[in-house]
């Protein structure tokens, strides 16, 4: 559905990371972990297209979006003030299948965005997810780290951190933490992050015979299955649409060599 949502808050949580809180009760009520919305960063024709953003949280009629400033669209969004209205539509796509045993959530960089919501819903369903989060560096992201730690602690989940600069948690890649978790009983992987990380995660999953759901991003114009811009190479032949068959897909359905 389409909404014209008031910005309740657009909070800076790090040097280039913001958390947007939107009053969008109908979308928030339907949102499931791993789904996304198409959001116009401002009204009118410039920028022309809406951007896909994964749903960071949904509660009390409000929708949360965690984003990093990466281009012109997100730069414009970062300057939007509370009280202003933005157009969006959603929730869209297939989210994470939560009917899994011993889940381990693996996040890399801004791939963290959909996973706190996923962890909360898993806990609500009686699961005890492990939560692994890797970043290049955590310097400059104190508020973000605090906010995530606090939010997950509220549902009894402790984040295992990894950072490539060694600033927080294990020095190195989050996949090292995943390899250990798989040896210690984690059975089902739910991952979101940059493509090289997801490739490594999918390879580890295959090695351990662990089922693995990955959330992918792709450039898209519509978000509703018609523009066919967000094609992801499918195992075998052809393509899957990130917006319809995804954005969360069983890693075995993808052709990782062509991705």
């Amino acid at each position: 559905m389409t909404a014209w949502a008031r910005i309740a808050e657009n909070l800076r949580l790090g040097q280039d990371v913001f958390r947007l809180r939107l009053e969008a009760p109908e979308i928030a009520a339907q949102a499931r972990p791993g789904q996304f919305v198409m959001l116009k960063v401002r009204h009118g024709g410039d920028p022309l297209l809406a951007r896909p953003f994964s749903i960071h949280g949904a509660e009390n009629g409000e929708l949360f979006i965690l984003y990093r400033v990466v281009g012109r669209g997100t730069k414009i969004l970062s300057m939007a003030r509370p009280g202003k209205n933005l157009a969006l539509w959603g929730p869209l796509g297939r989210g994470f299948d939560l009917g899994v045993a011993n889940p381990v959530l693996v996040a890399g960089g801004m791939g963290m965005a959909p996973l706190p919501f996923t962890a909360e819903e898993l806990v609500r369903e009686g699961k005890r997810p492990a939560f692994l989060l890797g970043m290049l560096t955590t310097g400059g992201y104190v508020a973000l780290v605090d906010a995530l730690d606090k939010r997950l602690k509220n549902v009894g989940v402790a984040i295992s951190w990894a950072s490539e600069d060694g600033g927080l948690g294990r020095k190195g890649l989050v996949t090292a933490l995943l390899a250990e978790a798989l040896q210690n009983g984690a059975a089902h992987i739910l991952a979101c992050g940059p493509l090289p990380m997801l490739k490594a995660v999918a390879a580890l999953a295959a090695e351990h015979g662990a089922p693995c759901q990955v959330s992918l991003e792709a450039p898209m114009a519509c978000g509703i299955g018609v523009c066919l811009g967000c094609a992801l190479p499918a195992a075998g032949e052809g393509y899957l649409r990130a917006c319809q068959e995804g954005p969360v897909l069983d890693s075995a359905r993808l052709d990782w060599a062509r991705l």
């Binding site: 920028p47 022309l48 297209l49 450039p219 066919l228 811009g229 967000c230 094609a231 190479p233 393509y239």
Partner: peptide
């Protein structure tokens, strides 16, 4: 099946 991705790119007032 269509072309390999990337398939779209936004431009000034267009795509």
């Amino acid at each position: 099946q269509g072309n390999p991705p990337p398939r779209i790119w936004e431009t000034a007032s267009g795509m």
